[in-house]
């Protein structure tokens, strides 16, 4: 099947079984873009609707039924937006780094498409984290912004996202953009432990984490529940949006492949 390839992914989009069989790789077999379209379409409602349900219940609970904090009063309700956004900002970047690894080592075409789509969504959620943090900081700390280790390292993460978005689109040959962006994603992952441990390694204005893997949460259970629900909701929502965008990206590659296919009457030369 002759196809004028515009980028490397289009080659795979013909979903030729011989190619899949030839590589025989686990990743290629289970996540090739053609299969992803089918899997993604089936997965989508299971992400989208629970995301909406969890987020609405979590945020509604946090906004109207959870108690006010003893010193922060009602401002503590900003937490139910800020904390999930902060977790996803780091989580999204970890996903980006994973895509980078899959792309560099296994030359996985789907990882490249996913990386293109995760970038803007991650940047948005990081911006939300920074904005809600700032809005929370003004009435509580008495300042919109300080250059402490936690705030600065999250700002660095935001710029890493922006750099990734720009880099992956910067080359005429998409493959070169994918490689460069994958390297940036992996290098930038160094920032993730810095963000996580910044509040322990250095003194900061930002308070240490209330929820840790090792210790019991230093938070009332009546606040922990809505926070957990909205975190699940935000995470599912992030996944739903990324899956939807990646499906669209696969379709767009397929459209490009069809348009450049000589079989199309009066199509490409």
């Amino acid at each position: 099947m002759p196809i004028n390839q515009t980028d490397g992914t289009d080659q795979l989009l013909s979903a030729s079984p011989t190619f899949v069989a030839r590589t025989g790789s686990f990743f290629h077999r289970y996540a090739n873009p053609g299969r992803f379209l089918k899997l993604g379409a089936r997965l989508q409602p299971w992400l989208t609707w629970p995301a909406i349900a969890f987020t609405l219940v979590g945020l509604g609970w946090g906004l109207f039924y959870s108690p006010a904090d003893w010193q922060q009063g009602d401002s503590v309700r900003i937490m139910y937006v800020h904390v999930p956004a902060a977790m996803l900002a780091s989580g999204g970047y970890a996903g980006l780094a994973l895509c980078g690894l899959l792309s560099l080592v296994w030359r996985h075409p789907l990882a490249d498409l996913a990386a293109v789509e995760i970038g803007p969504v991650g940047a948005c959620i990081t911006a939300l984290c920074l904005a809600t943090g700032s809005i929370w900081g003004k009435p509580m700390w008495g300042t919109w912004w300080v250059w402490d280790a936690r705030l600065t390292s999250v700002l660095v993460l935001f710029f890493l996202y922006l750099g990734h978005i720009a880099l992956i689109r910067a080359f005429d040959d998409p493959q070169r953009g994918y490689r460069a962006a994958a390297i940036l994603a992996l290098a930038g992952a160094v920032d993730l432990p810095i963000i996580k441990f910044s509040v322990q390694w250095w003194n900061t204005l930002h308070q240490p984490d209330s929820i840790t893997i090792t210790g019991a949460p230093t938070m009332s259970a009546s606040m922990l529940w809505p926070l957990a629900l909205s975190t699940i909701g935000f995470s599912l929502g992030f996944a739903a949006i990324v899956v939807a965008r990646t499906r669209a990206a696969v379709m767009e590659s397929r459209i490009r492949a069809l348009l450049s296919s000589p079989r199309r009457g009066g199509g490409a030369a």
Partner: peptide, 17 residues
């Protein structure tokens, strides 16, 4: 300038009282 640095404990008002 004086900034307040609250800790990581979140507690309902009534419980604190």
């Amino acid at each position: 300038e004086v900034l307040a640095k609250h800790d990581e404990t979140y507690m309902p008002k009534e419980v604190a009282e």
